[in-house]
Design a protein around this nucleic acid. Structure first.
Lengths: 344, 344
DNA sequence: CTGAAAGCGCTTACAG
DNA sequence: CTGAAAGCGCTTACAG
């Protein structure tokens, strides 16, 4: 190595060993290698007319040799580039997130948008993630939770579409409304003779969820006296634990309405381990309409979210906001739908 | 509208109604509005030193009024931009895809990469999707299937990392190896007294999958005579149908090894509907290690993929290829691991 | 069929 | 603290 040229000090690890990171080839490098101008390279690379087959071949060979790749920034600057959607979910390991993502990705592809996926539930790095996402995309959509607070001052004019953040949110948003489906399910419970229903709610601090209290009300209005219990965490495991306690009583419930499908799976599991038959001994229902609910045994009755509908609104809002054309209804509502299956 | 200026013809729909799409504000617009130079705008927007609080305020106000957002292309051209990974899956509705995606997104975030998610199983549009993806990302990784053929000629030098494409693939790749886990499971089956195992394979045309024949061999070597059956499609529903037939026989199987977890769920479902107890009457195992397998009742024994390990290799390869530094092992292997749960 | 010029929107030195 | 200049890598007219 003595005598070889180097730009860095002797102690620099970058200066030692193996083929170092080479500067990426640009259009000018290819042009020089092929002995043509850069616009001729553009013609060859982009398959445009007005270039002889022989020249094209020579250019493409040079490009290949140099491992040339057009810079998406250089190109995007002049063409405008594709639109990019940033999808933020809070926990990719909850099947709810990918079902939403699948619908959004599908719809986005149909509209010519790309989607960058971010899991904001990741330990500590949420702020950094949002910063880098906001620099890469045209519109951000998703479950931002507390991170939506002070958005304007932190991320300037990056349009934001909030999922299920409430109708009074200052941002554009899509809200889920389970009210009608809850009434339908309550009516169904009554119709099949339920007497002692339990509402198994999530673990929101000191509070009852909207869907929890809605179900309580719907059952009470029909003359039942539902019991409200909370899981200490919104997981199938905790749902299972609470269920195990409740069904061990002298007069156990004959129906359990779980906060979501994942928790309902925990309920099903606890019932099975206790030797209870669902739905004969006890009925179970969840919320979300996850695909998995149709694959377990018994299949799960649920209040399903129409993810395609959510995705449709998402892209509609994204396109409008991306075009700086906010002359549309910025608050959409998607209703849940009762899907009766074996468990209830 | 008469007399108002318009650039387009009278019949142009763009010329009618509502605030039309305005040109997006640039840094120069903000500079003009605030009465400063563009580099002062840069300082304000990017929170850099060397600017008075009062000037900064004025610039930020102007930016806000104009809804200014820095162009990611302009910025990327000079800063280099973040690295972007394109993740291609074949079917986002199969839980396998999101579990992989979750791991990759998590790891990518840790390494400062963004990931764009594409579902190539979408009707017909695969080619268009790959084209637009290849223009947006630095490296593409995933299940490309037949689309990996002729990659070089179609997408030039865009680095490609193939998942589970076989060790003889010309591209960089990560391969899954179930061999050892299959031996472990076969040994377990034998140890617990299995006599009549069935291997329920996927519906690959006229062929037996690698894992299917590996399991057949592993069982035969242990003195058993396993039966091989194929589902007419690789879905839980078809797995369910085949299972229903097989367990109806005079001497039904006492164990079923399914091609993957999703099909194993179908098997569980069929067993339950037939009144068979798992694992007492019949044992069931799948492949993939999906989270859902731990949530159903009975919980599913499986050969688990270490998605974090796959993600780790993915990012390692992506970084190396993105840096044009292919002096590393371009073919990685991740082994399955036997996870014994209730079903077997 | 090919190339010289202009410009997309930014940031990074550098000069005041 | 502020601004004039240069340049990132590409494509789009335009001229030959």
């Amino acid at each position: 190595m003595a005598g070889s040229s180097r730009l860095t000090g002797a102690g620099d690890p970058e200066a030692t060993g193996s083929p170092a990171t080479r500067r990426r080839a640009t259009i000018l490098d290819v042009a020089a290698a092929a002995g043509v101008s850069r616009q001729t390279v553009t013609r060859a690379i982009n398959d445009m007319p007005g270039i002889s087959v022989e020249t094209k071949r020579r250019v493409l060979d040079a490009a290949s040799t140099l491992a040339y790749r057009p810079s998406r920034f250089g190109r995007g600057l002049v063409t405008g580039g594709d639109s990019q959607l940033g999808l933020v979910v809070s926990d990719l390991t909850n099947p709810y997130s990918p079902e939403l993502a699948a619908a959004v990705v599908r719809r986005a592809a149909a509209e010519g948008w790309s989607v960058s996926l971010v899991d904001i539930g990741l330990a500590g790095s949420a702020d950094r993630l949002l910063h880098s996402l906001h620099a890469q995309v045209d519109v951000i959509v998703g479950y931002l939770g507390e991170w939506a607070l002070g958005w304007e001052s932190r991320f300037g004019a990056t349009p934001l579409i909030l999922l299920d953040a409430g109708a009074d949110s200052p941002h554009a948003g899509i809200n889920l409304n389970p009210a009608a489906a809850i009434e339908d399910l309550a009516a169904h419970f009554v119709a099949v003779g339920t007497r002692r229903p339990v509402v198994l709610d999530a673990s929101e601090p000191h509070a009852t969820s909207g869907r929890g209290s809605a179900m309580m009300g719907a059952l009470e209005r029909r003359g039942l006296s539902p019991e409200l219990v909370h899981a200490s965490a919104s997981t199938p495991e905790h749902a299972s634990a609470v269920t195990a306690q409740v069904i061990r009583r002298a007069t156990p419930p004959d129906a359990i309405f779980a906060f979501n499908d994942l928790m309902a799976l925990g309920v099903l599991s606890a019932c099975r381990h206790a030797g209870l038959d669902v739905p004969r001994d006890i009925r179970v229902a969840g919320v979300d309409g996850l695909t998995i609910g149709g694959l377990v045994a018994p299949t799960l009755t649920t209040l399903a979210v129409d993810f395609d509908e959510v995705a449709r609104h998402t892209l509609e809002l994204a396109v409008a906001l991306g075009d700086r054309r906010p002359d549309i209804d910025l608050h959409r509502v998607v209703s849940h739908r009762l899907v009766l299956r074996e468990s209830a």
